[in-house]
Design a protein around this nucleic acid. Structure first.
Length: 165
DNA sequence: AACAGGATGCAA
DNA sequence: TGCATCCTGTTT
């Protein structure tokens, strides 16, 4: 069963932590989330939403529970989940997934394996029985670090990684 | 450790 | 019009 609306409508950093160990389901495929990062609006210079809403980042400003997908470096897609209320930009980047016995370590690889593209941008995970988050590992141990792959706002400890996969 | 591949958004 | 980018695989 998809997690209910209240799971998403919270502070993006809290949701990023809580997504560690949860199960992501897309069609026939499902995997355990092993790595996430939180991105926020006005106070986060690394966020696509830092300079306000644009056609690309508009989803980040919308209501929680929606998927934000963008293309990076011309060949990879990255999947995010919006968590905060309308007007407060937010997104949790899904950076790692344990799918079958394969550890997809990296947001680009993960989207490639699941077949996530720009077509998935703007889909809601709430009350969705094809694409959603559900229960996974109980009380998973995880590590908190700074975010990687960015040049701005590198000091924020907003990355969460599942331990001993 | 360095970089090419390559599309897109946004600043200029 | 130019350039930086929430990445990855391949080559030094």
């Amino acid at each position: 069963m998809p997690l209910n609306f209240s799971f998403y409508e919270r502070n993006v950093v809290d949701v990023a932590q809580d997504l560690i160990g949860k199960k992501l389901v897309l069609g026939e495929k499902q995997g355990i989330i092993t790595e996430t990062e939180a991105y926020r609006g006005a106070e986060d210079e690394a966020s696509h939403a830092f300079r306000g809403s644009t056609p690309r980042s508009a989803i980040m400003f919308g209501p929680p529970g929606y998927v934000y997908v963008y293309m990076i470096y011309g060949m990879y897609y990255c999947m995010n989940i919006v968590t905060e209320s309308k007007g407060q930009a937010s997104a949790v980047l899904i950076r790692g997934l344990l799918l079958d016995n394969e550890h997809l370590n990296g947001p680009g690889k993960l989207c490639r394996s699941l077949g996530i593209t720009r077509d998935h941008n703007g889909i809601s995970l709430v009350d969705n029985h094809d694409f959603y988050i559900t229960q996974g590992i109980e009380k998973p141990p995880y590590q908190i670090t700074t975010r990687i792959g960015i040049k701005k706002a590198v000091e924020k400890p907003w990355r969460f990684v599942l331990l001993s996969v």
